[in-house]
Design a protein around this nucleic acid. Structure first.
Lengths: 236, 236
DNA sequence: CGCCCTCTGTTCGGGAGCGTACAATAGGGT
DNA sequence: ACCCTATTGTACGCTCCCGAACAGAGGGCG
């Protein structure tokens, strides 16, 4: 019973808009690790995640990387198509397997250029993405790995039906742009405190309020701003 | 002989577009340190810098801060007006005194909503701003203060007529989100190497090629991407 | 001319995170 | 049931940067 409405941006469209798009919407499977687009490569589609999570990463010449934003069913991957640049220097990777709907670039550009509610929605979502990136920049500068791990866990479980994440510490470290050992240590502290429990690639959040308390302010700032910009698209 | 055409986005507009905007364009003085807008406050105008430079900063609860982007005569301050959010959680501060033209929010929204060339220009500029923010995020994670200072100096002199900057090390440290001592040390190295010379709040870049060599890749990535997105708006 | 404030230089101890290396263990595949 | 590999745990030295404290120097202003 997959439905485009599982994506909250699509769900916020009017019946008329959705009708125009519906026949172009193609359900796609998003396996873990799938590279939705590669830095600099032309984008053919925008992706509206329904049950998957996509990470936007910047990769440096030496291979080091950092996640700059996360997109789940509250958003869309590939804003540069309607922003006009067609590509970006970032990489998009499926961080949690699931499904999405995709739309050919030309179709979304046509709808966007009608200048209606869809355009406003996409632009406001893009602004929330900007907020997430900017906050990530400050967070990278000033906050500890411990705090950032908490932020990252919260961002993830907000986009999942259950507070459980399938991901190794190694991959989390890639996302945060830190060493795996740093994640091991931070996760160990959280487990000892009873906030999470984990075993070989599976993390369960046990005490969300405490996790929020241990996280830096960045999580709350982004969440608040997203809710302001997209009230209909409230995270579950 | 101030002219709106000193701003490269305004200069890239068609005669018809500029004609519609011209009578609303108001020249404003931008003194050093002026707060163009404060985090969360409603924005009344967008600003098109001509000879000034504006920094976009994120400020944390504890007062720590970090620059996430720089805007000079190649850009516009206040994209959240036409993006639809009206405000952002960032602060905009004049980093180098000079002049700008401003436009009431409603005027630019009207022009933007015509969906013409102006809209495309603003969106592409916004995408270049996104690139700058994202690259800053990775840079904050992985690069040294030395490298970041080089990047920052390059961003500044690109937006100034002469390779001279009026700014104390203390303020540069605020921008980069590091300690003043860190900047003193990094600047000392650069001076010893003959790349820059400075005295009490005045920095002169003597050897730009070497500065580019010492900078991290982030400067070049952003510059290349900006030129791709906005070829007409090539930095001088 | 001299005062004083701002700006820059330098130092010291400490902590966070890195790179490296290696051990232990879980759990899927055969 | 066993093995093998992916995953996690731990330790060490090192570097970068922070926080604090203070000295010196430039230059505007009286």
């Amino acid at each position: 019973m997959a439905s485009p409405k599982q994506n909250q941006l699509l769900a916020a469209l009017s019946a008329a808009e959705l009708k125009r798009l519906r026949r172009h919407l193609e359900p796609v499977d998003m396996p873990l690790g799938d590279v939705v687009y590669e830095s600099g490569r032309h984008l053919d589609h925008v992706y509206f995640p329904t049950t998957c999570i996509v990470s936007l990463l910047y990769v440096l010449e030496n291979g080091a990387s950092a996640e700059i934003a996360v997109v789940g069913n509250e958003g869309v991957v590939g804003v540069s198509i309607f922003m006009g640049g067609e590509t970006t220097p970032s990489r998009a990777v499926v961080q949690s397997a699931g499904a999405a709907y995709r739309l050919p670039g030309q179709v979304i550009k046509n709808e966007f250029n009608r200048g209606g509610a869809m355009q406003h929605l996409m632009l406001r979502y893009t602004q929330s993405l900007i907020t997430q990136m900017a906050q990530t920049a400050v967070c990278n500068r000033h906050h500890s790995v411990d705090q950032q791990l908490c932020r990252w866990l919260l961002l993830s479980i907000d986009r999942l039906p259950e507070p459980q994440i399938v991901m190794t510490q190694e991959l989390i470290a890639n996302m945060l742009g830190v060493r795996r050992e740093g994640v091991t240590e931070a996760a160990g502290k959280l487990q000892k405190a009873g906030v999470i429990s984990y075993r070989r690639g599976h993390i369960k959040v046990l005490d969300r309020p405490m996790l929020e308390g241990l996280s830096c302010e960045c999580y709350a700032v982004v969440r608040r701003e997203t809710e302001r910009l997209l009230p209909h698209v409230a995270a579950h």
